[in-house]
């Protein structure tokens, strides 16, 4: 088993994003550090557009994640609905 992670700046844009990720990935662990959070998960982490849209009440393009993204680990697969990090092949 390998860990994937994603880190974001802490701000008003990322608060609902982090909330959505944690709800969609019950196995994920939140690591809070000054000015940033890092979300660690075994093997896979999935970010869903719909879950974020539900929390923010507007359309969301997953590429908006890039504005507040700090780092990722794992292979990325991104399409219109999901942003997936994994060490699976």
């Amino acid at each position: 088993m390998s860990t994937v992670f994603i880190a974001f700046q802490i701000n008003e844009d990322t608060r609902p994003i982090i909330e959505a990720i944690l709800a969609d990935n019950p196995h994920a662990v939140l690591d809070e550090q000054p000015a940033m959070v890092k979300i660690n998960a075994e093997d896979t982490l999935v970010i869903k557009r719909e879950s974020i849209e539900e929390l923010i009440g507007r359309k969301f393009d997953l590429q908006e994640l890039q504005v507040n993204l700090i780092t990722i680990s794992g292979h990325l697969d991104e399409d219109d609905d999901t942003f997936t990090l994994s060490w699976k092949n």
Binding site: A7, P34, A35, M36, Q66, N68, L69, I70, T71, I72
Partner: peptide, 27 residues
Amino acid sequence: VPFMSGAAYNGDMATVTFGFSAQSDEA
């Protein structure tokens, strides 16, 4: 990552901001 977080912890708003802005490209 740890360095910019350290800058934040030490009150250096300017560095944190350019650091994280750059890091968003690093991903």
